[in-house]
């Protein structure tokens, strides 16, 4: 932990940014469902997405304006992703994949907004996707859809996913457990990948920022050295923008690939 010497500049620990803090305490039955900072940023993200798309598609011009162009580019981007990966009958999953993509993208990006200095801790910007329970829930949702759709479309032939045809019989006892483990690890890897990326990026950002404050607090020659972690934190910040977009894309494309596996399980 880094403690700043300069009054007014308080470097928080790298984990403090992930703390869940209640804003409005709520209970449902005897379950605690308080409106927390996480819920606040989920709501902000969803409202921002809804408002943006609402105004972007309000006029529905033949020659799109700037906002409509962005909305249409996003639409086409995800639609092409779904069409290329699952095929044309996969377009029924398009709304789900699009919602997933835009939700994660917005959560990742909004988490990168710097907090207002001096604002209450529970109103600081918060990356909802930096919590494993959120990403794991999204991953489980995807896998649940995959399993339900797989069985609904292929019946028991969905189980061929674990035993690819053309496999020698003696390899079955080795390969089938491997396939099953690989299938079961999908939601874990899907959820942990997004979570760990966000966690790592924000910890590193906070560490670099903490170095700056610590060096400034030390005074004298060390204060001049503070420029190095400052530039470093800018570089990491830019990298995080790339990671934020890339992870949303990866989550969407992996969702598409798993859905495509479910759709074509009986074919191979």
């Amino acid at each position: 932990m880094i403690h700043a010497a300069t009054p007014g500049l308080q470097a928080a620990g790298p984990m403090e940014q992930f703390e869940i803090l209640p804003i409005v305490p709520l209970t449902l039955g005897n379950i605690d469902v308080s409106f927390t900072n996480s819920a606040l940023w989920m709501t902000i993200g969803v409202v921002a997405i809804a408002l943006f798309f609402f105004f972007a598609t309000n006029r529905r011009a033949l020659i799109p304006g700037r906002m409509q162009s962005v909305a249409e580019i996003l639409h086409e981007f995800v639609a092409n992703l779904v069409r290329d990966t699952i095929g044309h009958d996969g377009m029924k999953f398009f709304p789900y994949v699009f919602t997933l993509f835009i939700f994660i993208l917005t959560a990742n990006f909004f988490g990168l907004i710097p907090s207002i200095p001096g604002s209450p801790h529970n109103l600081h910007t918060f990356t909802t996707t930096s919590h494993i329970i959120v990403t794991f829930a999204l991953a489980m949702l995807t896998i649940t859809i995959v399993i339900i759709y797989g069985f609904a479309k292929n019946g028991l032939k969905f189980l061929k996913l674990f035993a690819p045809s053309g496999l020698p019989i003696w390899l079955m006892p080795i390969l089938v457990p491997i396939e099953i483990i690989s299938f079961l690890s999908r939601p874990v890897s899907l959820g942990v990948r997004l979570f760990a990326n966000m966690l790592a990026g924000h910890i590193i950002l906070k560490l670099f920022a903490g170095f700056v404050i610590a060096l400034l607090g030390a005074g004298g020659f060390a204060s001049i050295l503070a420029i190095a972690p400052f530039l470093g934190s800018i570089a990491i910040f830019l990298l995080e923008f790339l990671v934020a977009a890339l992870q949303a894309y990866v989550f969407a494309i992996l969702t598409c690939i798993y859905l495509s596996d479910a759709a074509h399980a009986a074919d191979h």
Partner: peptide, 12 residues
Amino acid sequence: LLAFALTEFTGL
């Protein structure tokens, strides 16, 4: 990008 994501997972 897919291979990138899968590989990155080991490190993560």
